[in-house]
Computed example of a mutant assay.
Amino acid sequence: MIHFVLLISRQGKVRLTKWYSAYSHKERSKVIRELGGIILNRAPKLCNFVEWKGLKVVYKRYASLYFVMCIDQDDNELETLNIIHHFVETLDRYFGSVCELDLIFNFHKAYYILDEILLAGEVQETSKRSTLRIIAAQEELVEIAKEQASSISNIIAQATK
């Protein structure tokens, strides 16, 4: 099971967090601080697995971001690296060469994609095409809702004149 997902920049700024296990706000801050320090200070040639508090932390650096997942001790690290890579490839296809700014300004879309791939700390969808099709349908629904809200506000504005 995946306990949490973190995206951390090289400067130590958190860009995305998703928690699948119960952690208090104080514990979350402590986890981010601890793991950020551990991962950012590791040499690039060291392996991408760290044992931490009876769990395994698997991370991979893509450009300026570290994608971090915390898993159970008996889970497969290579499969977790594969999940991270799948998430990055899906982000890449959606944004067209994803960068840190895409995630900063469109964080809600990154969360949508992550929620389509992972459900309650387990892999839900392995097809990038299916994930992107669902996200496109979601965006279409948002646009329809915006148009309806706009037309309703126009009707109300005309009625109150």
Rank of each mutant, 00 (worst) to 15 (best):
W19R: 06
K56E: 10
K60H: 15
I156T: 01
I2L: 12
A63H: 12
E100F: 02
T131A: 04
S24I: 12
R28H: 09
Q124V: 02
L119H: 12
N154C: 05
Q73M: 14
N106C: 14
E122R: 13
V88C: 04
G121F: 11
S21N: 13
A110G: 15
D102N: 13
Q148R: 03
K56N: 10
L16A: 14
I71F: 09
N41E: 13
I152C: 01
V31Y: 13
N154I: 03
F87K: 05
S21V: 13
S97T: 09
I84G: 13
I104H: 00
R61V: 02
K53D: 10
G37I: 08
G54E: 10
R33F: 15
E79C: 08
C70H: 07
E27N: 06
R33T: 15
G12P: 03
T126M: 12
N106M: 12
T80I: 03
E147W: 05
T160S: 15
V31F: 13
V68D: 10
E51V: 06
S29D: 13
A22S: 11
A137P: 00
L81I: 03
S150G: 04
E27C: 03
E122P: 00
S150W: 01
E140D: 06
L132T: 08
I83Y: 14
E51S: 11
I113R: 07
Q11P: 03
K26W: 08
V31T: 12
Q158G: 13
I71C: 08
T80V: 06
I134E: 00
L6I: 11
L81S: 09
L6N: 10
G54T: 08
E27M: 06
K13G: 04
Y59M: 01
F107V: 15
E143M: 08
I2Q: 04
S151W: 04
N76D: 15
A110Q: 06
E89K: 06
